[in-house]
Amino acid sequence: MSLLEVKNLNTSFQIGVGTVRAVRGVSFHVDEGESVGIVGESGSGKSVTMLSVTGLLPDYANISADSILFDGREITRLNQKALRALHGSEIGMIFQDPMTSLNPLFTVESQLTEPLKNHLHMDKRSARARTLELLRQVEIPNPEARLKQYPHELSGGLRQRVMIAIAIACEPKMIVADEPTTALDVTIQAQILDLLQNLKRESRASIIMITHDMGVIASMCSRILVMYGGIICEQGDVREIFYGARHPYTWGLLNSIPKVQQKRGEKLIPIKGTPPDMLQPPAGCPFSPRCRYCMPVCRAYMPPVTALSDTHSVSCHLLHPNAPKIEREV
């Protein structure tokens, strides 16, 4: 059963020179206990999509959706107070940079007990017991001493663990991790990814992982959404995306990273050009200006979604029966 179901989400920002249409008609679902990855470049709308769902965007953001169902409840119709209760206790957020998302003026303890007091209405003593338990759960050594410390006294890896402890404090049904390891070194990244996998196994919460790193996605997620220019251009399970991708942008992403067995001297195949300006996105497919297989129809019309299997669907005019048959270059 799906835990989260989003239908036709649109998010735009009114800024001085016009309207930035960051998310344009995105629909997807996340099943219970599933880990879904959202990949895309900066400005593709991957973070804004999840921030719209979790209600963390500033007031000037214009969010509209046909429906956002979370755990059977229509959250587009909830009032501010109910939304706040839902977001704090049932959806946990982990952000990219723990230095900016933790409050530098408060100790680890006071930041960790805040959700416990506000959402679970715990008293001081049981909240303290729970914080120690949480710090042990995220494998922080010597938790008693850490409680008294401020974020600047912790290393990047430890800060991210504290962030994760806050996110799981109220045992949420869904954890949204927005580039959780991008700011960390590889060996610390490995520790955090290990921790997230262990937590997932124990808690059965769904995880939505937002990242630009195809390696992180391959090892962490069972299903992938590929976003470009504010739309989902391809989605499928992890094998369908890595071994059977059909969208030229997904091919481009996979081809522009060095392969594990790649020999020196073999050229990478970059995607030419730069991502679209979301103030004036192209009328048709957002990828058309950079696509090697662009046809006249691509510039004029947004491609329809073509389903290839229960899980795999692609938004590309190349999948039209009359379009030329093109395979991924390897």
């Binding site: 590889v186 195809m214 390696g215 594990v260």
Partner: peptide, 10 residues
């Protein structure tokens, strides 16, 4: 520790 961008190898 480097995540491998290939689910089978990973």
């Amino acid at each position: 520790a480097v995540p491998i961008a290939d689910p089978d190898l990973a």
